[in-house]
Simulated scan of single mutants.
Amino acid sequence: MDIWLAQHDVTESSKTTYRKCVDMHINPNIGELRLNELTTQRVQTFLESLTPGTAKTARAALGSACGMAVRWGVVARNPVRDTKLKKTSRKEVRALSDEEISQYRSAIEKWCGGNSSGTKRGESLVEIVDVLRGSGMRIGEVLALRWQDIDFENGTVTVAGTVDNKGGRNSHPKTEKSRRTIPVKQCALQALKVQWGKEYRPFMGEIVFPTRNGTYRTVPNVSGDLKKARGDLDIHAHDFRKTVATRIEESHGVMAASRYLGHASTKVTEQSYLARPSVVADYTEAF
């Protein structure tokens, strides 16, 4: 597992997730087995002892590592290939209404700067929300934006990286197809213009949404602030991405939504990003 993880070509965030799973679950439970002892039955028993989310991560890690072992000629077949994960009920995708978006933004705006002492809280949080809702970008992609990625004249943003949880920037987004240049909605463009006009901007270098120290913000820190700011509203940053996907699909089809969001395939878009309409459109003319 250690040899596999060292050469596995994924983002640092994903590598950290896999490392945690290896250290906490795989190595303590089946790490002492020889490869010829790692049967499909043993892997299946191990996966069934884990929670659904952990089992999914463990299966992905084990499957990829054993695939490497097959390519190296160490084992004849991949014992993970024929294992099955427990079926879990998929949470219904939620697309936000204009009213919900407005309520969320108002809650964030009210919370920002609402503290009576200390440094003003929530700096640039409203602008980050406006970019999220006007672009459908992942929050890590928004936080990784540099001024060179913004084209104010043409109204486009180039998605060319993501942030890690240590305040660093990866020079590539989540997947190869996530790297893209997209037109963004006026609210996102206006938020970026507001950010450009802030008095500290000339001293902070290339980062669009820097910390007070001029470093990249992390997703956990920004998500934590958004959670405090939204209060009782059951709305999350990723809901904006799903909302954008659903609205594009309704007008232009699933392929357009998939390409705009930078998904590797339309399957990802269909399974996890499109909300079902309460009433299906009238297609009866095609009967």
Rank of each mutant, 00 (worst) to 15 (best):
L5I: 15
Q7F: 12
H8M: 11
D9V: 13
T11P: 00
E12G: 14
S13D: 14
T17C: 00
K20H: 12
D23K: 09
N29H: 11
N29K: 12
L33I: 09
R42W: 00
V43A: 01
T45D: 08
F46I: 08
F46N: 09
E48C: 10
L50A: 00
K56N: 10
A60D: 09
S64Q: 13
C66N: 09
G67Q: 09
M68R: 11
A69W: 08
G73V: 09
V75G: 02
D82K: 10
K84L: 08
K86I: 00
V93Q: 01
V93S: 03
R94M: 03
Q103D: 02
Y104S: 03
Y104C: 01
I108F: 00
E109R: 04
G113D: 00
G114V: 02
G118M: 04
T119Q: 13
K120S: 11
E123F: 02
L125H: 09
E127V: 00
D130L: 03
L132C: 13
R138M: 05
V142Y: 03
A144D: 10
A144M: 10
L145D: 03
I150H: 03
D151M: 04
T156R: 14
T158F: 09
A160C: 06
T162F: 02
G167H: 04
G168K: 12
P173G: 12
E176I: 14
T181E: 14
V184R: 03
V184F: 10
Q186K: 15
Q190C: 04
L192F: 12
V194A: 06
Q195C: 02
Y200D: 10
R201F: 02
I207P: 01
T211V: 11
T211D: 11
R217A: 04
T218N: 11
T218V: 06
V219I: 08
P220N: 07
D232K: 07
D234P: 02
I248Q: 02
E250H: 04
V254I: 15
V254P: 05
M255Q: 14
R259K: 14
R259W: 04
R259C: 02
G262Q: 12
A264E: 15
T266M: 12
